[in-house]
């Protein structure tokens, strides 16, 4: 086995090349882009999508998907803000996180026990959980009366915002989990060949439920950090987040069919979206163009990937 540095280089997810190109581009053409203050800005702006993406990556490596994350964001935020007057901040936050984990458990159990495709199960949950949010909030926005809550969202440690630390720390932890632990390696086995994983004695059902709980936790955490930034929650919070998150994860090289993907790739995908938004904003390009550019990049990445793969595989024309 040869371990040349080149071989290592080829394992860097291709999205990082695009990310570096974007950073270079905006450094030259957008004033005040290349600054520490702006980079921490980007980190905070992307941390919401980024946190959910960490969980989504694992679920997608499993060959599943979770469309309900946007609604879970709203539910966790509403619970954490709405309950803190009565319970205090920490218990309210715990209830919010618990709700996310519980819904993840529910999604996972339904996927496991009924055998209905995760896309369908979580599509239903996406609507249903949003209904729960409206039911709980009575369609009202909640505002945090405790300044400590919003202060946390604005705080920083060693010059870097606390929320950015949280995101980075969890990214590192998830990277280690996916590359070094049996649970992480089993995730690839389950997604790569589910029947094989089952036959090899991996308890596939339980494994998948754990990962749905993980993405539920991350979505809830994202909702709570988002609400600390705003000092409030709205019932429509997180609408369309599932699409942004999936975009980021796919940009990072995770395959919808399962078995393939890395946390580092997802980080690259999340940051690329963040840099594009931030940089175009600094260049005073209207926000709509970001949508077009995002869509184009997503499809372009897919095209390049397919071209490379097909040349290697030498498939028949279909």
């Amino acid at each position: 086995m040869t371990k040349s540095p080149l071989r290592h280089l080829s394992r860097i997810p291709p999205i990082w090349m695009i990310l570096i190109a974007c950073v270079a581009f905006f450094s030259v053409f957008a004033d005040s882009f290349f600054a520490i203050g702006n980079f921490t800005n980007i980190l905070i702006q992307t941390s919401t999508i980024g946190l959910i993406a960490l969980g989504m990556t694992v679920v997608m490596i499993n060959g599943n998907i979770d469309l309900s994350v946007g609604a879970v964001v709203a539910l966790a935020a509403s619970l954490a803000v709405g309950l803190q007057a009565d319970l205090g901040i920490v218990p309210a936050v715990l209830v919010g996180l618990g709700a996310g984990v519980a819904l993840g458990f529910l999604n996972g159990m339904v996927v496991w026990k009924t055998g209905v495709d995760a896309f369908i199960v979580t599509l239903g949950a996406m609507m249903g959980v949003r209904g729960l949010v409206f039911l709980y909030t009575g369609e009202q926005s909640f505002f945090s009366m405790n300044f400590a809550y919003a202060d946390f969202g604005m705080s920083s440690i060693a010059g870097v915002p606390t929320l950015a630390w949280v995101f980075l720390a969890l990214t590192v932890i998830m990277h280690v989990v996916m590359t070094r632990t049996t649970h992480g390696r089993n995730a690839y086995a389950v997604g790569g060949n589910r029947e094989a994983a089952e036959n090899a004695g991996i308890r596939v059902g339980r494994h998948m439920v754990a990962n749905f709980m993980l993405v539920g936790f991350f979505a809830a955490l994202a909702g709570i950090t988002l609400s600390t930034q705003m000092g409030a929650s709205t019932p429509n919070l997180g609408t369309n987040y599932e699409l942004w998150v999936i975009t980021a994860v796919v940009l990072g090289g995770t395959k919808l069919t399962g078995g393939v993907g890395t946390i580092l790739g997802t980080l690259g995908g999340v940051l690329t979206i963040g840099v594009l938004r931030n940089g175009m904003n600094l260049m005073q390009v209207p926000a709509f163009y970001v949508l077009v550019v995002m869509g184009a990049i997503l499809i372009a990445v897919l095209l390049v990937d397919a071209r490379v793969n097909r040349r290697v595989a030498g498939e028949v024309k279909l």
Partner: peptide, 23 residues
């Protein structure tokens, strides 16, 4: 019955990867 993206060793030991502490 193999997971194509994983290594030969991981496939042979699928479901019984040798573990250290903390998984």
């Amino acid at each position: 019955s193999l997971a194509p993206e994983m290594t030969v060793a991981e496939n042979i030991f699928l479901g019984s990867l040798p573990r250290r502490a903390l998984g």
